[in-house]
C-alpha cells in the first residue's frame, strides 16, 4: 500500500472501489493482499469487517482504475475464499466517510 501518495495527491489517478464477499477465516486477508502484492498492483486502502453471523466478511479495496484492473478482478475472483466481487466507481462512499479518521 502507498498511503502517502493517496493522501497527498488524491486526485492524481482515477480510483475504483472493489467489494469482495469472502469466507471469514484467518488467512483470507493474506490471500487477498498477497495476490495484489505479488502481481504488483497497488492497493490504496483496505477495510474488512465480518457480516451477518460472522461466517462471511466483506473486504473493501480502494484501487487505481487502470488497464490492469480487469485482470486483477479476474484473478481475485479465482480465489476459492472469495465468494463474489463487485466493482464500484470512486464515488462509492465507504472510503470517503473514513477520511475523517485519517485527517
Amino acid at each position: 500500500m502507498n498511503m502517502r501518495e493517496s493522501q497527498f495527491n488524491p486526485e492524481q489517478f482515477s480510483k475504483a472501489v472493489l467489494e469482495l464477499t469472502v469466507r471469514n477465516h484467518p488467512g483470507v486477508m493474506s490471500h487477498v493482499s498477497g495476490l495484489f502484492a505479488r502481481r504488483a498492483f497497488n492497493v490504496e486502502g483496505i477495510l474488512c469487517m465480518p457480516v451477518g453471523d460472522g461466517a462471511q466478511s466483506i473486504i473493501w479495496l480502494l484501487v487505481r482504475e487502470d488497464e490492469r484492473l480487469p485482470q486483477m478482478v479476474s484473478q481475485v475472483a479465482k480465489l476459492e475464499d472469495v465468494l463474489s466481487v463487485a466493482r464500484h466507481g470512486a464515488d462509492h462512499r465507504v472510503f470517503e466517510r473514513l477520511e475523517a479518521f485519517f485527517a
Partner: peptide
C-alpha cells in the same frame, strides 16, 4: 478454462 487467461 481459466477466464483470467483471456486477455491477460
Amino acid at each position: 478454462i481459466d477466464a483470467a487467461e483471456l486477455g491477460k
